[in-house]
């Protein structure tokens, strides 16, 4: 299986509100709201942990879902979000700054 790595752009401001994540993007001046499962993936996007591990170790531990379904949904989600420039997706580990964001 192809490994996929995800990392958050530094051109955002994000805050967690309850189980959801609020993200203000400086890329296109959009305000995003992520649901709890999406927020779990977002928070784990350190550029070093493969998406498959994020799904099995974070999503599947926290939510009632199979690894297959969760991975399929997560791949769709990260691909969609990457189109907005606030999440980077790569088949190689992604270098991030000390705060865990891509400059």
């Amino acid at each position: 299986m192809e490994r996929k790595y995800i990392a958050r752009s530094a051109r955002i401001a994000a805050r967690q509100l309850g189980d959801e994540m609020m993200i203000m993007s400086a890329v296109d001046s959009k305000f995003f709201t992520l649901n709890p499962v999406a927020a779990t993936v977002w928070l784990a996007a350190d550029g070093q942990t493969p998406l498959g591990e994020i799904v099995t170790q974070r999503v599947c531990q926290e939510f009632e879902v199979s690894a297959e379904e969760a991975l399929r949904d997560a791949e769709t989600f990260v691909n969609d979000l990457s189109q907005h420039g606030i999440l980077l997706v790569s088949d190689q580990p992604i270098a991030t700054n000390a705060a865990g964001y891509v400059e």
């Binding site: 709201t33 649901n35 709890p36 499962v37 999406a38 009632e64 997560a74």
Partner: peptide
Amino acid sequence: GARKPYTKPEYRYEEVFETMACNFN
């Protein structure tokens, strides 16, 4: 320790300037 109900990871967004709409006016 109980796992929470699963929903597909989803997001929604809105244009900030539309929400703001005063310099904008």
